[in-house]
Design a protein around this nucleic acid. Structure first.
Length: 192
DNA sequence: AGTTCGATCGCCT
DNA sequence: GGCGATCGAACTG
């Protein structure tokens, strides 16, 4: 796969969060021997988006959301799960893209070991907590560089065409009506 | 220092 | 569809 794809440059992330979110669909996350194709994401906008962690300003947790683009923001939620975001926008402007689902491509046996209760491939990474487990992504990787670090995002040279859908984000109470969730239409690995 | 509640998941009915 | 698990960040006083 390495010969048929290239790592996304930092300039890919240094744009508006919604634009980057939409274009993340179809890209491939590689971590160690595991890889998955992004099929569902959500955009979390800077300070006005009350559902975004960045809306309350810079804290120890949200620091990387305000930093340079092309880095991973990994946070701990519900006492149990880690979730992966990509940082967008120019340095100093917050913007996060929550990766909600990937289609497993490589390292399926490793993913099954990390997701022992999953009975089907469709259950390996069809949710933000699940995908972090399947890809082995934890809070230790918060702040990791997506261009040169341990997690990389690649674009296939012959990325297949696909239609996308858009709708409200999942699991939030504030700003619950904004259509900031994006997915690959009809893909069976989307969380819902 | 104490309380609240969350960008979830899996099990139960 | 409903709910319990589980714990840290953020907010209150």
């Amino acid at each position: 796969m390495a010969a048929e794809s290239k790592v996304l440059p930092r300039s890919f992330y240094a744009r508006g969060t919604v634009e980057v979110a939409r274009e993340c669909l179809g890209k491939v996350i590689v971590h160690g021997a595991t890889a998955g194709r992004i099929v569902e994401v959500e955009a979390y906008l800077g300070l006005d988006d009350l559902a975004a962690h960045s809306s309350r300003g810079i804290t120890e947790r949200t620091r990387v959301l305000f930093g340079p683009p092309g880095h991973a923001y990994v946070y701990f939620i519900y006492g149990m799960y880690d979730c992966l975001n990509f940082v967008a926008e120019e340095d100093g402007t917050p913007g996060g893209i929550l990766i909600r689902a990937v289609e497993p491509l490589s390292g399926l046996a490793i993913m099954q070991r990390r997701r022992p209760k999953a009975r089907r491939v469709e259950d390996f990474a069809s949710g933000p907590g699940k995908l972090a487990l399947a890809l082995g992504i934890t809070r230790e990787l918060n702040g990791a560089d997506l261009v040169e670090g341990p997690i990389r995002v690649r674009q296939l040279r012959d990325e297949p065409r696909f239609a996308t859908g858009c709708g409200p984000r999942i699991g939030i109470t504030k700003c619950a009506d904004l259509p900031l969730r994006f997915w690959v239409n009809g893909n069976r690995f989307v969380s819902r």
